[in-house]
Computed example of a mutant assay.
Amino acid sequence: MKIGLLQCDDVAQPLIERHGSYPDMIQTLLRSVDPEVELQVFACHEGRIPDRTDGFDGWLTTGSKYGANDDADWIASLERFIRTLWQAHQPLVGICFGHQLMAKALGGRVERSVNGWGLGAYPVTLSQQEPWMSPWDSPTLELLASHQDQVAELPPQGRILAHSGFCPIYMMQVGDVFLGIQGHPEFSRAYLEDLLELRRTGVSAERILAARHSLRQPVNDLLVGRWILNFIRSRCGAATAP
């Protein structure tokens, strides 16, 4: 399987030596499920937007410190490319910022959460079971999170797959080929722990403490990594991940 990775940010410089880049994290996650997955990285945040949609089984968009509503040329260009993928019926999975930009590009709405920062691990409820959600362990899901914005209104053809009181549109499917996930299956606990330390000046001490405490909980990172590959394979006609 060959996936085009739409990179939307860099890991903060103090953390990159220990934790690697966002493409490194994505590759580690996906190759833990399927060692033969191949990624081609496009540094969209540096203005390097793909000029074609063919040659890939699917696409994946990373998270970012930027917001989907930010006024930046590369974000507008990436929105246009997302619409091109939609028109070409190419599978796309968006993570965090990628989930939000997918919604905005297709006519949904993204807003700053009135609940403040979503940090650490928090449980969400799966609204329905899809064929690509295999294996199915539980009607609840838990991933690491780090976000202020979230999808406030689905785009046309969108439907909610997972939700919580904190984040009502946590996972969505748009049509047959787009999947958005607010959480970060690629993050490690160690990375989020260090990221929380960097964010001490912008987040309340109570929220940081609660996020640190939540990191003791098990998360479904590998399960969601498997679901991502299953989703893309099911859209390009291949079998689900072993």
Results as ranks from 00 to 15, higher is better:
1 M>Y: 11
3 I>V: 12
3 I>P: 07
5 L>A: 11
11 V>K: 06
14 P>W: 03
16 I>R: 15
18 R>A: 14
20 G>H: 13
20 G>T: 11
21 S>Q: 03
22 Y>N: 10
23 P>W: 07
27 Q>M: 12
30 L>M: 11
35 P>R: 02
37 V>H: 02
38 E>P: 00
39 L>G: 10
39 L>T: 10
47 G>Y: 00
50 P>H: 08
50 P>T: 11
51 D>Y: 08
51 D>F: 07
52 R>M: 06
52 R>I: 05
56 F>V: 03
56 F>K: 02
57 D>N: 11
58 G>F: 14
59 W>N: 09
66 Y>G: 01
67 G>H: 06
76 A>W: 12
81 F>A: 13
84 T>F: 01
85 L>P: 15
89 H>S: 15
91 P>H: 13
95 I>S: 13
99 H>M: 01
102 M>N: 04
106 L>P: 04
121 A>F: 00
124 V>Y: 03
124 V>M: 11
128 Q>F: 02
138 S>F: 04
143 L>F: 01
145 A>P: 00
146 S>R: 11
154 L>V: 05
157 Q>M: 11
158 G>C: 09
159 R>P: 08
159 R>F: 09
160 I>N: 01
161 L>Y: 04
163 H>I: 03
165 G>T: 02
171 M>H: 08
172 M>E: 01
173 Q>Y: 14
174 V>Q: 11
176 D>M: 06
176 D>G: 10
179 L>Y: 09
181 I>K: 11
182 Q>H: 10
183 G>F: 04
192 L>I: 14
200 R>W: 04
210 A>M: 01
212 R>E: 09
213 H>P: 02
213 H>C: 03
220 N>K: 06
220 N>M: 06
220 N>A: 14
222 L>P: 00
223 L>R: 13
228 I>T: 11
228 I>V: 15
232 I>Y: 05
232 I>K: 05
235 R>W: 05
235 R>H: 06
240 T>P: 15
241 A>L: 09
242 P>K: 08
